[in-house]
Write a protein that binds this DNA or RNA. Structure first.
Lengths: 86, 86
DNA sequence: CCCGATTTGTGCGTATGTATC
DNA sequence: AGATACATACGCACAAATCGG
């Protein structure tokens, strides 16, 4: 359970942080990650996807930029109402 | 009392957190840190070994990965039965 | 029952070094 | 030469749980 590392493929001409962000956005839009749920922390994301912590941070920043999550300092990052696709 | 900072040598090609984890594992296997005893807190470890708290956290995580300790949130980290050396 | 100290958990920012593309 | 990515390391702040007085 919870194993889905194959999302990351360093050989693809797509940035790792974008690949992971896309995967998480998919999980949000399909409801696998429900609104209000807490996203895994940077360290956990790094371990789950087999990426570095710095990259995990870029993933979260990307998700924030997409308006998919909100981060509460010292608490965590939570799924928010996703905007329309586009 | 309790001064043993020379364990840490940033110039060595061995990560600081590994150096400290090795030192603690030694203390566990020699019985200096008996099973059931409470390991010093992250802040204390940081001060004792002259490292940052973040690094002390990685030390504890490493010890957990080695199966040498168990951590109880908001309580502390305790020495557990060490597995066979390998 | 509340207050403060302690401790782990988590986040943010930054820096260094290496490797790859 | 530069960007991406990885791993380590330092430092700081706050949250939440626990425990003792």
């Amino acid at each position: 359970m919870g194993d889905q590392e194959p999302v990351v493929n360093p050989n693809l001409p797509v940035y790792v942080y974008v690949q992971v962000a896309d995967a998480i956005e998919r999980d949000i839009r399909t409801g696998r990650l429900p609104v209000g749920a807490r996203l895994a922390g940077e360290q956990d994301l790094a371990e789950q996807y087999g990426i570095a912590r710095g990259t995990a941070r870029r993933v979260v920043q990307e998700l924030r930029d997409r308006g998919l999550v909100v981060t509460l300092p010292s608490k965590g990052t939570y799924i928010s109402e996703p905007p329309a696709e586009g």
